[in-house]
Write a protein that binds this DNA or RNA. Sequence first.
DNA 1: CACCGGGCTTGATTCACGTCAAGTAACATG
DNA 2: CATGTTACTTGACGTGAATCAAGCCCGGTG
Lengths: 229, 229
Amino acid sequence: MRTIDLPLIRRSRLFAQVAEPDLAAMLTACFVQTLPEGAVLCRQGEKAEFLHVVLSGRVGLFGAAARDEALVEFFGPGDAFIVPAVVLDAPYLLTARLLDEGRIMMWPAAAFRAQVRATGSLAYGAVLLLSGYWRTLGGLIKDLKLLSAIERLSAFLLALAPRETGPVTVTLPGGRRLVAGRLGITPQSLSRAFAALRPLGVSGGGREVTIVEPARLREFVGSRALKGT
Amino acid sequence: MRTIDLPLIRRSRLFAQVAEPDLAAMLTACFVQTLPEGAVLCRQGEKAEFLHVVLSGRVGLFGAAARDEALVEFFGPGDAFIVPAVVLDAPYLLTARLLDEGRIMMWPAAAFRAQVRATGSLAYGAVLLLSGYWRTLGGLIKDLKLLSAIERLSAFLLALAPRETGPVTVTLPGGRRLVAGRLGITPQSLSRAFAALRPLGVSGGGREVTIVEPARLREFVGSRALKGT
DNA sequence: CACCGGGCTTGATTCACGTCAAGTAACATG
DNA sequence: CATGTTACTTGACGTGAATCAAGCCCGGTG
């Protein structure tokens, strides 16, 4: 555990309410690893052994099936994922893989379970974290069931853009292949979706995409999709 | 609050770890309502005002879009839903509607937020509850992205069936329209999906469906879809 | 009994997206 | 400089599911 990691750990929502001495005590059981891109942190079907907290880099959660796999969600610094598998002491539902090189804090499952049960402030942090994730997944399901591929891409781009009216340039979180997985479509379809959005002022080179007029895009997806919200 | 409700409340995972005197104190802020089928408990986009705990009946969470809406998940007795919106003090992401007549406990949002922050055992219960829900949604997304409609129906039926080998009769949680929404397809497609499964030993009258040989169905969905789990 | 309305099924057609297959561009490697 | 290699785009074609449109079955009502 390097001292350089501490501020990153502190910043996680999981620890926001934990008092300083408690935090120090908790972390004695943990260790930090630097891992390369592509490293697998946990595998679908295996028993939960560690809670992982992302300190740097990004992690993707994948669901595997016969031939292909789908990205379910991804996480960045400050996120603690697979909390559910750990607290319920259940097998991992998904496979986690590093999308970049990154530093990951490992927290032995049994120790974490005991801490959550014993420390109210940690449990509260977990509630906040899980609440955010639940909303993310709920929104994802809504999108998958109700929106077309093009609409989902629009919504995705808008979510990436800061709430502005002028032209914005957003950076895609990874290659197009990854984005396609997140949207639940193939890379080819993603390409077509980008082409379909070009007339609406979405010009995309490589990993950078600029939206000429977010309002227009917002109106497009809004009119076709969301009523409330 | 009727005394008849207490055992139901106790049974909820949310309160599993809460000591008896604490529980009594918490419940002073709550009240219980009997509501008819179709009653709307909360509406997408509105600010969270109550946490709802289902005591009897079933509740569906729907996402609304321009013309249609999709069922995201449903809940039964013991479930406390929209915890995330309440603890984050954020607008509801989804609309909740009663699928049957049912008794619902209402817990004012501010009071619940304060209790979760103050009472570790309640926060721990919330962590368990949310963990379960996260896994449900994660599985749902995996299914939506990787499985065909027929495969999703198979998996859904198998999840309803007790872990048996012999012929099983399962009861659908509501009309076919509802099931179709849950699976992310139209009622017509559901009908066709049932027809497609008939050769595999799935005979469906009305709301009861009997599976002649669960193992065969399991093999069907397994071979085509899930590798690990 | 005739009548009607809602839920389920079935058929014909349409459409979105996946699949297969080239083709292009950027970059590293021999 | 030729050559992979990888990432992205584009086109042609097939398919799964939505849509449109009847029919069917069943319970309620006059």
